[in-house]
Nucleic acid binder design. Structure first.
Lengths: 242, 242
DNA sequence: CATCTTCTATCTTATAGAAGACTATGCGCT
DNA sequence: AGCGCATAGTCTTCTATAAGATAGAAGATG
């Protein structure tokens, strides 16, 4: 919302928008190589320096990866990326480990009011819900409740119940072409419900860290709502603040 | 830890280091204006473009503020900065408010093992400890325990007990020349101790969000250890993940 | 296997103009 | 003379382009 005159964005910002739009529209798939800088510059009608600035900006948001001598590539949801960018629970000894998963339930249905509001969907649009138990170093540590819009994930189905991979974001990207670009998390301390407690082997009322996350796709639309209730006896959530 | 040959850092990175060092050594005080780009470039023996890149990097870490037409200034710990960069508790309605403070205690003493380890001090170096109760919208919401190395804050004293300001980081900067540049936070859900519960008006054992933060000065040394135990009934901790 | 070439991104410098912010000047008016 | 105001000038950062040197990666060639 610019106040004075509607000044046009600087050229590099418009170039960035154009590139982002291409990324979002799936012109280049995950892991693919983008055209070299001079080619992009020519196709956008700007200088190489300008396209460079745009690419650097996008790389800073982890949407592309630049490798000297090789080229610029669309970011993939690798295990390492999941571990370092999207999973913030760390062992108290400082070691990071990706949690294992045990599927508890998967079913589809119309969205509740909360769900459609949080995901920005039409009232009672169809959603798919799943629940998982996640294991850290073998022990149950997180109860996870996930809601996704059915429209974005056509074909995600009860039949998938058995063989959903551990890393859902990679699945979203590979099978449905939905790349999670960023996420907003809200944390609270809550008391374990009797159900939570049973899953995690704690007494009811034990303090749990609740991570409430909305994940956004490249085009900015919300694509997942995930609530994770974590036991933080041997782990903690890390956050860097600058 | 670079693996192959010890390649020199690129010029802009060395320029950044040189500038950071000057910032850390207090050549320019908080709020002061840095020399214009061409002057800096000349003094460092690099081109204006290179110094620009270094300055942009530093600005991205919120250590300086650049204003077109006016100049480049050393960042100050304003209220807004405290609110947006260093205080992550937000009301469930989305509104941010800086908490008020009520001092509970302030005393000096030799560091415990934990304290000297977390702050990177010699064993049993002198530290100052303070405890505060913090209020959100008038209601007690956070119990805060703060430990700082006495060496960095010469003259911080029991006599200050009454009139310590709400925003400590501004005090650190203005009175002691210690600028908090970044911080690392570790979050856990814990059960309220009887003492916590009494301060916060909760029952003992209620779930609290514990924020354990080490703050680092410009030169990279730890300058504060702060543990905040927060009631998250009406508030939550926000975290953006890219 | 070693070397060379080619393609790529990265680094560095230089130049020019646009735009924001502040100061000083000068002009008209009272 | 003194006041108010527009304008010009100057200093600053910001934007944009260009060009060449550097360095990593890969394949072709000897």
């Amino acid at each position: 919302m610019r106040s004075k005159l509607a000044r046009p964005l600087p050229l590099y910002a418009r170039a960035k928008q154009a590139l982002m739009q291409k990324l979002g529209s799936g012109v280049w798939r995950a892991g693919e190589k983008l055209p070299p800088e001079p080619a992009l510059a020519a196709s956008l009608g700007v200088s190489q320096g300008t396209v460079r600035r745009a690419l650097d900006d996008i790389a800073k948001a982890n949407l592309i990866v630049r490798r000297q001598g090789r080229g610029t590539f669309v970011a993939e949801h690798t295990q390492a990326r999941a571990l370092f960018h999207f999973f913030h629970l760390v062992g108290d000894d400082g070691r990071r480990a990706l949690p294992g998963s045990r599927m508890l339930s998967l079913k589809a249905g119309p969205a509740t009011r909360d769900e459609s509001q949080r995901l920005g969907l039409a009232p009672s649009a169809r959603v798919v819900r799943l629940q998982r138990l996640r294991l850290l170093e073998g022990a149950a540590a997180i109860v996870e409740r996930i809601v996704v819009p059915a429209a974005l994930f056509q074909g995600l189905d009860v039949r998938d119940r058995a063989d959903l991979p551990n890393e859902l974001y990679k699945l979203y990207q590979d099978r449905f072409g939905v790349s999670v670009a960023r996420a907003a998390e809200r944390l609270k301390a809550v008391a374990a419900s009797p159900e939570d407690a049973a899953y995690l082997g704690l007494r009811s009322g034990a303090p749990l860290l609740e991570i409430d996350r909305i994940a956004f796709a490249l085009d900015g639309r919300a694509c997942e709502w995930r609530v994770s209730r974590c036991s933080t006896h041997r782990h903690h959530y890390v956050s860097e603040v600058v």
